[in-house]
């Protein structure tokens, strides 16, 4: 029978701890036994892995910072170019520039206009 390894004492202990009949208290018991040194090494390894995960995330976040900085620099450069073009445009369309242009020099004074009065 499957309950053959149960003894009276175990049953009494289960009743005391409030467990019901036919409720499993042990699912699996490994035959591998770990000593304290192995435990320590495993814990250290887990901490290291967690640390590495943290570092990876931190580095990943920092890499975004560099990407952001790169894009910001690009935006700044493009804005500078835009401003520069605006200034050039303003200079080229300044009245003094237009007045002295070859087109303006070639213009003639208009004839006296006629008006239609309704």
């Amino acid at each position: 029978m499957s309950h053959s390894h149960y003894n009276r004492n175990q049953y009494a202990a289960r009743r005391r701890s409030g467990m019901n009949r036919n409720q499993n208290s042990v699912a699996f018991v490994s035959s591998i036994k770990l000593g304290p040194v192995t435990h320590t090494v495993l814990v250290a390894l887990m901490i290291t892995v967690l640390g590495l995960i943290y570092l990876t995330q931190a580095i990943k976040a920092t890499s975004y910072d560099y990407e952001t900085e790169k894009i910001s620099s690009q935006i700044t450069r493009l804005e500078e170019e835009q401003v520069n073009l605006e200034v050039e445009n303003a200079k080229l369309t300044a009245l003094s520039e237009v007045r002295d242009s070859s087109v303006a020099r070639a213009m003639v004074s208009p004839e006296a206009p006629s008006y239609v009065n309704n």
């Binding site: 931190a58 976040a61 920092t62 975004y64 910072d65 560099y66 900085e69």
Partner: peptide, 10 residues
């Protein structure tokens, strides 16, 4: 910031 004065989010 890092050594190149790049602002970091940390």
């Amino acid at each position: 910031t890092d050594v190149a004065n790049v602002p970091l989010t940390i």
